[in-house]
Computed example of a mutant assay.
Amino acid sequence: MKQKIKDFALVTIGAFISAVAFNSMFVENHIASGGVGGLAISMNALFGWNTANFVLYANIPLLLLCFFCLGKEVFIKTVYGAWIYPIFIKLTAGLPTLTHNTLLAAIFGGAVLGFGLGLVFIGHSSTGGTGIIVQLFEKYTPIPLGTSMAFVDGIVVGLGFIAFDADTVMYSIIALLSITYVVNLVMAGADSSRNIMIISRHHAKIKEYITKVADRGVTELPMVGGFTGQENRMLMTTVSRLEYQKLETNILAIDETAFIVVMPATQVRGRGFSLQKMHPNLEKDILIPM
């Protein structure tokens, strides 16, 4: 229940931030950076259509696709995001345009909007529109979320040539790149963990600390020193980014000469990360949870 509340809060805050960037940076500068929002800006320039209404109505067929392909739970959260985003666009429509410098609007507007979208995606939802197509790519293909978003939104940006001149479209591409970069940054930051390799003469004490105090799984790997030819044990464990500094401090307290290799792990699945940790020992596990 707490996770659901957290998800809906992230979607709400992210949708609001995105709507603010949309109205205060993109609309008046004609930056059609992709997605249904980008199409809305193009349609507004061509036919004078209300951007919020266009985003709302264009989501209907895509929501049906979401229901049948992504499941009921994602559909429910996506319905909320697809509803609240155009509502926030309407509520923030009166905001003044922060800059009429199109380049600045593309870069900083893209960064703010990308941050908002990143929060929405962390909440396992989207603002509807082409975000649903991006989620389909994430589910059924190995393509990274940011890359699939760039591909789908790139098509929408290309359609901007119908409504705007080449300079405006190129600014829209800059905005799209800014959005994609920040979304990837936010997503990686949310899931970022550290995979740690430890070589120490006190590996038994370090293993005991990791399993019993840090409450993380650990793997022992047999190894032979390339220079000495002596057999030893290397420990491997994975911890969250926030846990790493404390873990390193305590390892060095046990053995100040410990050799530690830290590698980024941008996505970790399993107990203690994507699944709830289970403490009973399971014989068939490779990493026994402690």
Rank of each mutant, 00 (worst) to 15 (best):
F26N: 12
V27P: 06
V27I: 10
N29C: 13
S33M: 12
S33W: 05
G34A: 01
G34Q: 07
G34W: 00
G34E: 01
G35W: 07
G37C: 07
G38T: 01
G38I: 00
L39R: 14
A40T: 07
A40R: 06
I41T: 08
S42H: 08
S42R: 04
M43S: 15
A45V: 06
A45P: 06
L46Y: 04
F47T: 12
G48D: 05
G48L: 10
W49D: 15
W49A: 13
W49T: 15
T51A: 13
A52V: 00
N53S: 13
V55D: 07
L56M: 05
A58M: 15
I60Y: 06
P61M: 03
L62T: 04
L63H: 08
L63W: 09
L63I: 07
L64D: 08
L65R: 05
L65C: 05
L65I: 12
L65A: 15
C66N: 03
C66E: 08
F67L: 10
F67E: 03
F68V: 12
C69M: 12
L70T: 01
K72C: 02
V74R: 09
V74I: 13
F75W: 13
K77R: 09
K77G: 09
T78Y: 10
V79H: 01
V79L: 14
A82M: 01
A82F: 02
W83G: 08
Y85C: 02
I87G: 02
I87N: 08
I87K: 09
F88A: 11
I89V: 05
K90I: 15
L91I: 08
A93L: 14
A93V: 06
G94T: 06
L95S: 06
P96G: 00
T99S: 08
H100S: 09
N101D: 05
N101W: 07
N101F: 08
T102S: 15
L103D: 04
L104V: 09
A106S: 15
G109W: 02
G109C: 06
G110D: 04
A111M: 13
V112R: 00
V112F: 06
G114W: 01
G118H: 13
L119M: 01
V120Y: 00
F121C: 06
I122G: 12
I122E: 09
I122S: 15
G123Q: 14
S125F: 07
S126G: 01
S126M: 10
T127E: 02
G128P: 03
